[in-house]
Each structure stands twice: as structure tokens, then as C-alpha cells.
Simulated scan of single mutants.
Amino acid sequence: MKKFFILLVLSILCGSASWAQKIGYTDMEFITSKMPEYQLAQTEMKKFSEKWAKEIQDKFAEIDRMQRAYMAEEILLTEDLKRTRQNEIKEKELEAGEYNSKIFGMEGLLFQKKKELMKPVLEKVQRAVTKVCSQRRLDFMFDKSSDIGMLYTNPKHDYSDYVMEELGIDPKNNKSGNEEKASRTDEPEQTQTKVPTPTQNSPKQKSRTSKLK
């Protein structure tokens, strides 16, 4: 769908004689693979991922030991001791699952660490993209390797205000002073560049169902 959209935009821009805009594309996946800063960030990410994965694996290994010990001693335990041991195991399982989500969840610590490590790389890439577009007088820059599609757009081609007015929406009521666009100018607008996500070594932990009900 993304590629279809890009091709559609390109065909419209290139097919109209009245358009004088210049467009270009780049391959950010290839570019970032050649950046020492990106490689360093990937290495750091791998270290954190492996460290946290080991901690979670250790937690589940401890649960396995507790379960084996319980099964070996079950016949000798009173009903009260059985319930106590079962609850201890269940609490450990819950704790391990919550910690796994805390680290490798959608907004977990690994995700936050990736943002932190990638921020300087993203900023450096965006500065380069903006400078190249300015020097080459490009109005649009696409990234063929990313879902984000558009890396750079000249704000003078932004007609959002006109569309909002057509819909009966006052654009000024939907923007703060700091977000007010310098529309219809030649000031370059920066669009955040999406750098390919580094490989993450998430723990291959399967959901465990307690053997003890």
C-alpha cells in the first residue's frame, strides 16, 4: 500500500506539466548500515537485550526448580504446606511474566533504550537529509526502505489549512503558538526519519501454565 501510494504521488507530480517540483528518493536502510554510530547503537542494544533476557531466563529457571522440588516432596507435605508452596510458585510465575512485559513490552525498557540510543543517529540523518534537499532544491524526498515513506516535504506545498477550511474547521483553533506553521514559505520542514529497527534478542519464553491448580 505504501509503495502504491508513493508511485501514485510520483506519477501525479511527474505527469503534470504545470508542476515544477523536484522529487527524489533514498535508501535509509542501506545508508544507516554504513554509519558507525548506527552500528554502535545496535551493539549497545544487543548488550541490553541479552542482559535482560538472561535475567528473565533465570527467573523462569528458578520457577522450574521450585516446581520440581514441590513435585518430589508433595507426598510428604500437609495440605496447608501444599497450598503455601503452590502460592509461592504462582507468585514467582506472575512476577516473571510482569518483568518480561516490563522489559520487552510495547513500551518497555528495551523500547525506551532503543529510542535513547537511536536519537543522535536520527538527528544526524535528518540534518543530512534536510541539507541535501536544500542544496539540491528538492521539494519531496522519499525513503524506499521505510514505511514512513516521506522523509522531507517543503511546507509551501502543505494545503492542510485549506482542507480544514473547506470542512468548516478553523485552523487557528487547532494549533498552538509554537505549532503554527510557516506555511507557503520556502523554509524546509523536517520530518522525522525512521531508522530500521536493530535486531533484538528477546527471550524465547513461552507462556507457562502452572501444573499446580
Rank of each mutant, 00 (worst) to 15 (best):
V9G: 01
S11Y: 01
G15D: 00
S16H: 13
A17S: 15
A17K: 15
A20S: 07
Q21C: 14
G24D: 10
I31F: 08
T32V: 11
P36F: 03
L40E: 11
L40Q: 12
E44G: 09
K46C: 02
K47I: 07
E50W: 00
Y70H: 10
L77R: 01
E79H: 09
T84S: 10
R85K: 15
N87Y: 01
E88M: 14
E98S: 11
Y99P: 01
N100S: 08
S101P: 07
S101T: 15
F104M: 04
G105H: 02
M106P: 02
E107I: 08
K113C: 01
K113G: 01
M118R: 10
D143F: 08
K144V: 14
K144S: 11
G149A: 04
G149C: 01
M150Q: 05
P155D: 08
D158S: 11
S160A: 13
M164Y: 14
L167I: 09
G168L: 06
I169R: 15
S176V: 05
E180H: 03
E180R: 09
A182F: 14
S183C: 12
D186H: 09
E187L: 10
P188K: 07
E189H: 03
T191L: 03
Q192M: 15
Q192K: 13
P198W: 01
Q200C: 05
Q200I: 07
K204I: 14
K206T: 04
S207C: 04
L212P: 05
